[in-house]
């Protein structure tokens, strides 16, 4: 049975082929059979994790606590310089200039990216908004969040900052940013499950050395990354504690 690798479903579509290339590279480096299984939604991925079907995961920070505390995963590496940030935006025509001007009943568009939604909802708190008094507008991706704003179907949108910056300039011009998070310490992490943990140090080293290798650099580029950085156990615990404080 091959080991199973999965990627947080919020990866950028542009990097879909990059994850397949990375998986091939990783199998070659580790001499292990690894199958890449991608999920369209977080819930499907979580069900697979709960059923102990996953051995390697590029995980959303929101799921890190569950992976470490309940399923015995340990951190390997994070992408250098990459952190998850959120943006609160409204239509450029909106009269709202500050989150504090929003009121209960505001229609909020978001995707199912759990960490981005969490950060976004925190940035809406200064307007006395919470999950209990907003009107949720679910969207399948960030382009659709933008479309909900432009069509007047939502009053504010919660975006992954990277996804907002990747919107076409024509769409971005029709939107207005109210808040951009500057948290810096929330990031996706490549993590290893119990069945592979006897090879943790070896795989961690292979990944950390990846940018020293010509082929490795090419694979990293296909993922949109520069290099991998080792995550110490305490760094992961710190991020889990941080997410725990925010998830209140």
């Amino acid at each position: 049975m091959p080991y199973v690798f999965t990627v947080s479903p919020d990866f950028t579509p542009d990097h879909l082929s990059g994850w397949y290339i990375f998986n091939t590279w990783l199998q070659h480096q580790t001499k292990a059979a690894i199958h890449l299984e991608l999920y369209d939604h977080f819930q499907g991925q979580r069900d697979a994790i709960q059923a102990d079907k996953i051995d390697l995961i590029y995980a959303n920070p929101f799921d890190a606590a569950m992976l470490v505390r309940e399923k015995g995963f340990l951190p390997l590496v994070r992408a250098e310089g990459e952190s998850d940030e959120a943006i609160i935006a409204v239509s450029a025509d909106s009269n709202v200039t500050d989150v504090a001007e929003l009121a209960p009943g505001t229609r909020v568009a978001f995707t199912d990216d759990p960490d981005v939604k969490l950060m976004g909802m925190i940035m809406l708190e200064p307007g006395d908004l919470d999950a209990g008094n907003i009107v949720p507008v679910s969207a399948g991706n960030y382009v659709l969040v933008a479309k909900h704003l432009l069509k007047g179907e939502a009053d504010v949108g919660i975006f992954l900052a990277e996804a907002f910056d990747d919107l076409s300039s024509m769409i971005r011009k029709q939107l207005k940013i109210l808040v951009r998070s500057q948290i810096s310490v929330i990031h996706h992490s490549l993590m290893i499950g119990p069945k592979l943990q006897d090879r943790r140090a070896e795989i961690q080293q292979i990944l950390v050395d990846m940018d020293n290798d010509e082929k490795g650099i090419g694979v990293l580029t296909s993922l949109g990354f520069n290099s991998w950085h080792k995550i110490e156990d305490e760094q992961m615990e710190f991020m889990i504690d941080l997410m725990d404080t925010l998830n209140t």
């Binding site: 504090a100 925190i122 940035m123 708190e125 200064p126 307007g127 006395d128 710190f238 504690d241 941080l242 404080t245 925010l246």
Partner: peptide, 12 residues
């Protein structure tokens, strides 16, 4: 202990 502070609402 970890302490995290965020922007409060004016009302609160």
């Amino acid at each position: 202990y970890t302490s995290v502070r965020r922007k409060p609402s004016h009302t609160k």
